[in-house]
Design a protein around this nucleic acid. Structure first.
Lengths: 185, 185
DNA sequence: CCCGTTCTCGCAACTGAATTGCATCTCCGG
DNA sequence: CCGGAGATGCAATTCAGTTGCGAGAACGGG
């Protein structure tokens, strides 16, 4: 346990604690890799994890990284997801939940032309009781409204050749999710 | 060259016509592959396309299938998308639009545990005027309601077992319905 | 109807991410 | 301090997709 990188020691501590809480073996690769996820606010590819390993621990094998990440998913600590680039990205479940929580407070606009998703202004989320009837056994947590249509950018491009940019203002944050696949073509 | 499969001759005809309309060369591989997409109501992997080639045309090379599919995407006829299994699936753009149209008439339920998306009963879609304020320049087409929560299956598993989260192991394809896109946001 | 240009096709070899087999090493409970 | 279950590292393999290149077909012009 030589003190690793000075940059993210807190994450390393947290990682050790969580592993111990799991009742699982606390090994150096697991600590480092979990610390990576804890310290990152965006989902990481296996390669990104390797690059960001604390302690410059290039000592950890690629295969071990794969195995530990899959193991974390199995333990319910992490989430594994592949995007349109066919590469897996891993993130802490709780970070994912935190991101979702933010999005819970507003609605979204989905452009059916460029496939991007925008955040609408806050407090635009519908009330819980707006939920339609759901099958028995299903538990409603919250209701989300998505507006579909054409975004300003795509609309401008269609109407004429005048790329009247700047139409956007108001409360539009750009695409929220890291790894959000904006229109590939 | 003998007359191909008797099963989907209409699709073959349609395929030839569309290729001609494009002003592109009408080759046997293109016709067969496009016919596959036309004749399928779900997105197909490259392998699925090969398996479903009309005329038992095993004569068509894997590489050619890849190239033609990518070419169709380039021409705006098809859509290419990778799921959580890291495999590309191709579908006709217009089929995709048709599917979207169907989903437009009802709401969805998203299970935050297993990440699957279910269709709720028809006529549960909110009225257009339910849309919150959108930035200027954005054109609203329709509004969609998504209910988030825990599905019956996951709910039952939680009550019974302890290992609610991890046991099911994530990482696997979520969508129960073929062609049902698990909504990213 | 034939010909040549140009675009496609098929074969084979290659890439890059992820997985598997196996021997070695290391946590951790006793 | 020791032993064994379980984790790690290395090498080889799989799997989906990509690239290079020469042979072959489509189609417009003669």
């Amino acid at each position: 346990m030589s003190s690793p990188t000075p940059s993210l020691p807190a994450a390393v501590d947290a990682a050790q604690e969580r592993l111990r809480a799991l009742g699982a073996r606390v090994t150096q690769p697991r600590v480092c890799i979990l610390a990576c996820l804890i310290g990152s606010d965006i989902p990481l590819t296996h390669q990104a994890v390797i690059d960001r390993l604390p302690g410059g621990a290039e000592a950890i094998d690629r295969v071990t990284v794969y195995r530990v990440l899959d193991w974390l998913v199995e333990q319910g600590l992490a989430q594994k997801r592949a995007g349109n680039d066919r590469v897996f990205r891993f993130s802490l479940i709780e970070h994912e939940a935190a991101r979702a929580e933010v999005h819970r407070r507003h609605s979204h606009f989905h452009c059916s032309r460029c496939d991007r998703t925008f955040c609408l202004e806050a407090d635009s989320a519908p009330p819980r009781q707006a939920a339609p009837r759901v099958p028995s056994g299903f538990a409603v947590e919250h209701v989300e409204l998505t507006v579909n249509g054409i975004c300003a950018e795509c609309g401008a491009r269609t109407v004429a050749d005048a790329p009247a940019a700047g139409a956007t203002e108001g409360a539009v944050d750009a695409s929220p999710n890291p790894g959000e696949p904006t229109c590939p073509n």
